[in-house]
Design a protein around this nucleic acid. Structure first.
Length: 580
RNA sequence: GCUCCCGUAGCUCAGUCGGAUAGAGCAACGGUUUCCUAAACCGCAGGUCGUAGGUUCGAUUCCUACCGGGGGCGCCA
């Protein structure tokens, strides 16, 4: 393993075992980052308590075993029993060389590769994508990239709203306009226009309302070709629009990833039969329900999960349980990731519990609700556009690119026009995505263009700039990046040491991020790395006269830093430009 | 009413499987450019970690209560 904290844990475990007589496998040496040394091991405190021994003496005994001598130049027992570890430069050099030699820059593959389904974005047909879709889309996409990178088989699913009562009025409105051949264009500045027209008609006319209701029934039967053709056209046109948004935003989702509610609809009756056979289906107030333990309604009575309305119709609980079933049984997924807003929390818990009771969602299969908070405006309410509606996603994307353009025009006027256009995109979209990813997903956050595009602080441009500066060094040196990859760097100055330690923790950062499904952890890591690099950059000249002896070594550190930055940003769905 | 989540520096945010003086960025103040991109770096300053108890050798982290903010709580999704 390239991570020294990980590597040093093994001899520490042995040392603790030798001193305590406990099996090494049961011991956690509690190796952590430290501001007093390269790392600290806190395991002595807990073990001493457990064994009724003096923690300081235990720590001293561990150090006295000599098992750490190969890796550490200094092992000091401090305070109540912390073991402060300082790694030898040779050990760090070797670890860096190992990371540099791997095309994964030191990131381990997952111990057990799984099939994972990541459900994210989920817009509605005939409606606009707005700011509410931004976080789920960006977070889901980052998780997809990371899960794939560590070796899982990832299936992206875009669970779009393409079924249900609104389609009665939408289809009927199309019929009025001339049926399937009628003109239907999604106006990118008002993608919900068609929906609003249909809605207005529905609200104004009882006659239309009746036709719409009849049309829903016809749709549900899936037998009427003209109805299905119009429905398909609505879905296709919306998918075109979604692809425009996803393309500009630079996310992986495409129309092939669409698995809408309509897909599950034909399987719902069979799912209800299974619930029934399992003895889980009950009746309550005329509806078919599953009694999921642990949930209560306003009156303090048990709260049911309704899977079939009194009217006989299915709802999102029906759809979501069917969906779990499909993902586990057809796709053989063992990890079901739901990137959905926090308000769905209780609903999803009930769905997961019901699926578990059905014997479908059982180990090793499991589901995770990767919930996210809201994007707020200055008024602390959900970000609005000038019209007072939730801000449209495409407008935000375009505005990000426009702001990127302004920055490039000011800062990099010398670049060729096509490169400027690309850079504007890289910076603008990068800043927008990074703002979504860099703070804890479960909290609401306040949207602020000037902060996310700031060229300092924990922002995408800061990270991109660090990367570009490294590329510039190699351009100036006329040395190829690949040519220094065999070099084992020498760790001398404190900034080299700090950079090295940071570089070697990429693996831990990626895995920690995935353990918590929290992309902001990777962001924090990359920001720390960029800061460590810029400090190194100031203090450790690479190409200047008088530094020939350290040149190769520092070029190797630069190359690895750039690779980690580029790979790390790529895992977030953000590009790293070579010039800016 | 029940329940879930959040509350850390003036602002925006990290951190917390219990550990040693709680960290960044912005803003403020003071420095650094004959030198690889100053979109940077270095320094200084700033916090009773919502409040009050409890457990512990040790609590911002765990438990309880309360205060403040937000979400959810049966036939829309």
């Amino acid at each position: 393993m390239a991570d020294p904290l990980h590597t040093v844990a093994a001899p520490l475990r042995e040392a603790f075992a030798a001193v305590t007589g406990l099996p090494a496998a049961d011991i956690d040496p509690v190796v952590r980052n430290s501001d007093r040394a390269d790392a600290q091991a806190n395991g002595a405190l807990a073990l001493a308590k457990q064994l009724g021994r003096n923690p300081r003496e235990l720590a001293e005994a561990v150090v006295a075993t000599g098992l750490l001598a190969d890796l550490c130049s200094n092992t000091e027992v401090a305070g109540p029993g912390f073991i402060n570890l300082t790694f030898t430069p040779e050990f760090l050099s070797a670890q860096v060389a190992e990371a540099a030699a791997s095309d994964r820059v030191g990131v381990r593959r997952a111990a057990t590769p799984e099939i994972a389904v990541v459900d994210y974005s989920a817009p509605n047909v005939a409606k606009e994508m707005h700011v509410g879709h931004l976080r789920t889309t960006v977070i889901g996409d980052a998780l997809v990239r990371m899960l794939e990178f560590v070796g899982h088989t990832v299936i992206r699913e875009n669970h779009i709203g393409d079924w249900g009562t609104p389609f009665g009025m939408l289809i009927e409105h199309m019929v009025d306009l001339g049926g399937v051949d009628a003109e239907l264009t999604i106006d990118l500045s008002d993608p919900s226009a068609f929906y609003k027209q249909a809605r207005a008609k529905f609200d104004a006319s009882d006659e239309f309302k009746d036709r719409a209701r009849a049309r829903v029934t016809l749709l549900q039967s899936r037998t009427d070709a003209p109805t299905m053709a119009i429905w398909q056209k609505l879905v296709d046109k919306s998918a075109d629009y979604f692809d425009v948004v996803y393309g500009k935003l630079g996310v992986l989702l495409r129309r092939d990833d669409i698995v809408g509610e309509s897909f599950y609809q034909p399987m719902m009756a069979a799912m209800l039969d299974r619930l029934d056979q399992a003895g889980l289906l009950a009746e309550s107030e005329g509806a078919k329900v599953v009694w999921v333990p642990g949930f209560k309604n306003r009156e303090g009575e048990p709260l049911p999960l309704i899977v079939q309305a009194r009217t006989g119709g299915f709802n999102y609980a029906t759809s979501d349980i069917t969906c779990v079933l499909d993902r586990v049984e057809r796709l053989h997924a063992t990890l079901l990731v739901y990137c959905v807003g926090t308000p769905q929390s209780q609903h999803l818990q009930m769905v997961f519990k019901a699926s578990e009771m059905l014997g479908v969602l059982v180990p090793p299969a499991r589901a995770v609700h990767v919930n996210n908070g809201n994007v707020l405006g200055d008024d602390r309410k959900i970000l609005k556009s000038r019209s007072g509606e939730p801000a449209m996603l495409l407008d935000l994307v375009d505005a990000a690119i426009e702001r990127g353009r302004a920055i490039v025009a000011e800062r990099s006027p010398e670049l060729p026009a096509d490169e400027k256009a690309e850079l504007a995109n890289t910076i603008g979209i990068g800043a927008l995505k990074y703002a979504e990813l860099s703070s804890d997903r479960i909290k609401d956050y306040v949207f602020d263009w000037s902060r996310m595009l700031a060229l300092e602080g924990n922002t995408a441009p800061y990270l991109q700039y660090a990367h570009a500066r490294i590329c510039s060094i190699f351009r100036k040196a006329e040395v190829s990046r690949a040519s220094v990859r065999g070099v084992t760097p020498t760790i001398g100055q404190s900034q080299e040491r700090a950079l090295t330690l940071q570089l070697l923790q990429f693996d831990a950062a990626v895995h920690d991020t995935l353990d918590k499904f929290s992309p902001h952890r990777l962001c924090t890591y990359l920001f720390d790395l960029a800061q460590a690099f810029t400090s190194f950059y100031e203090a450790c000249p690479v190409l200047k006269d008088g530094y020939e002896a350290t040149r190769e070594s520092r070029l190797a550190l630069c190359d690895l830093t750039a690779r980690v930055l580029q790979q790390g940003l790529a895992l977030l769905g953000i590009e790293a430009p070579e010039r800016m």
